[in-house]
Each structure stands twice: as C-alpha cells, then as structure tokens.
Amino acid sequence: MPEFIDDSTFGTYFETFERTAWRLETRRGYASDRQSVHWARWKAGEDVSRDPTSAWRENIQRQTAAGKKIERIRLVDDPPTEGQLFLLARAPSNEAVGEDMRNMWRADAEHLGLPALDFWLFDDHRALVLHFDEADEYLGAELVEEPTRIAELGQLRDAAWPHAIRRRDFAAQVASSV
C-alpha cells in the first residue's frame, strides 16, 4: 500500500504550483459526487452547471488570473455512465474560473495506452496519484516526486492532451448520441 499524504495538505498543492496543474480522471464515477447535494439536485433535473463560488473555484480563478494553467482530461465511456454525465454537467463551473476541461472517449484512451490512473501533475516535478476502492471511495493521495515516475506521468499527459476534446464540443457529441 502506498504512503498517503495528510489530506489536510491536499489543497496546498493547488496554491503553491508555479506554472501548470494537470489532471487525468479515469474513473467511471466517484462516491463523493454521488454523496453530494449537487448530485441530488442534478438527479432532480436542476441545472448544476453554474453553482455558487467555492473555495476550490476561488483558488482556481486566482491561479489562472496569475497566468498559471489548470488543465484536466476526463475519460468517458460509450455510453457514458451516470457519474460521467454528472461531471459533464458540472464542468462549466470550473471552466468559468479558467480551468481547461477536456474529455476523451475511453476507447481512444485505451488505444493510446493510457492506464486507469487518476493523478494530478504539478510543474513536471511533483504528482499526486489518487487512490480509490472498488466502490469509488477515495482512499488517499500518494505524493510522487521520483523523477522517472514523474517523467512517465508527463509522457501520459503529452500523449493524451492532443487527442482530448474540449468539454463543450464533447458534450455536444454526447447529447447527439443519447
């Protein structure tokens, strides 16, 4: 079992990075989403794309206003899972504060050889690999600073990013297929 960071320090990685924070999300759903008030509102048919500000979005806005990049790719199954549809619906809130949200069909990710690994990569010298159990419950984040492993994560980013589709365009593809 990997050694996890103290979760109380998780947010500091998003305050102290210098240039880029990049995320790959590969899970079909997250227990924390299903347990949120936003999920219940979305399930009730409410628009959850423009929720009120949060500490997360306030920080993202500060970081992007300072010229830093925050980018994310979410893998999506065909057809999308309920959790993936929820995340597509929520993404405009993050985009509104400067996060570059993209998606990729899981089959395309598999063709590229992307592993089922959720992680954040910061400035090409530090990463947080997120661990989950079979029920999609978050177990913890493993800090990675070993140069060879960081280089591997950077190669995954470099392979995936050119093939990722902007969230708005991807959402249109999903809507036309449903």
Rank of each mutant, 00 (worst) to 15 (best):
D7I: 11
S8T: 15
S8Q: 15
T9P: 01
F14N: 01
F17T: 06
R19S: 15
R19W: 14
A21F: 09
R28S: 13
A31Y: 11
Q35A: 13
V37S: 14
W39C: 09
R41I: 01
R41N: 14
D47N: 14
S54M: 09
I60L: 13
T64R: 05
K69P: 00
E71Q: 12
R74W: 02
D77L: 09
P79R: 05
P80W: 06
G83Y: 05
L85I: 05
F86D: 14
L88G: 13
P92N: 09
D100N: 14
R102E: 03
A109V: 03
E110M: 03
L114V: 08
P115Q: 08
L121P: 11
F122Y: 14
D123C: 07
D123I: 07
D123W: 06
A127I: 05
E134H: 11
E137D: 14
G140K: 01
I150W: 02
L156T: 12
R157L: 11
R157Y: 08
R157H: 12
P162M: 01
P162C: 09
H163Y: 08
I165G: 05
R168L: 13
R168N: 14
D169A: 14
F170I: 01
A171E: 11
V174E: 12
A175H: 06
S176E: 15
S176L: 15
